[in-house]
């Protein structure tokens, strides 16, 4: 099988799983939320064709699916990177300069907040309070917490996660 064929097969498999999830919840009150959640876990995010499939499958307007998907920050509309960065913008972190660090992350990665890098390695998010105010300013990369950050530390931290460039 070629790469394209493999991708195609995986995608068909993912849509089959989505169809099953829709069948499971169809007719329930508030079926949209659980189906969107399952779609996110199947695909990793909820792109346009997935939302259309949900709208058709549950017989709800696409507008409603999209409205819910954009209301809750847990749903990603774009493919997420391999590593998810969550920079805390809670009050404590904010007053200790979290915005500056977020700006640095954004410029180092050349990506806007809420989006993923072109190479698919990182997704940069701003989050609410992570509950580690004593370490402010704080960020998380995947499950790792980084505290008392300064913006000059950012390149070194990111380097740990970057895939070595093919030489």
């Amino acid at each position: 099988m070629t790469d394209t064929e493999i991708k195609q097969a995986t995608r068909e498999d993912q849509f089959a799983k989505l169809a099953a999830a829709i069948q499971n919840h169809k007719g329930e009150r508030g079926a949209l939320m659980p189906v969107l959640q399952e779609a996110q876990s199947i695909f990793g995010f909820v792109p346009q064709d997935v939302q259309v499939a949900i709208a058709k499958g549950l017989d709800v307007p696409l507008t409603e699916v999209y409205g819910v998907a954009t209301f809750y920050s847990q749903f990603a509309l774009e493919e997420r990177g391999e590593h998810i960065i969550g920079m805390c913008l809670g009050t404590a972190c904010y007053v200790r300069g979290a915005q500056k660090i977020l700006d640095r992350l954004s410029s180092e990665l050349d990506v806007k907040v809420g989006h993923s890098t072109k190479d698919g390695q990182f997704t940069l998010n701003a989050t609410r309070c992570l509950g580690a105010c004593g370490l402010a300013p704080v960020m998380m990369i995947d499950d790792e917490v980084y505290g008392r950050l300064t913006s000059d530390e950012i390149p070194a931290i990111l380097a740990k996660y970057r895939e070595p460039k093919a030489s």
């Binding site: 507008t63 999209y66 954009t70």
Partner: peptide, 25 residues
Amino acid sequence: CAKVQNVSVIGPVGRGFKTQIASPW
């Protein structure tokens, strides 16, 4: 659009201060 006409091409998008009435995407 939704209740009278059953068309539903506009709805609230996003959250909080940035909520706007728009069509998907």
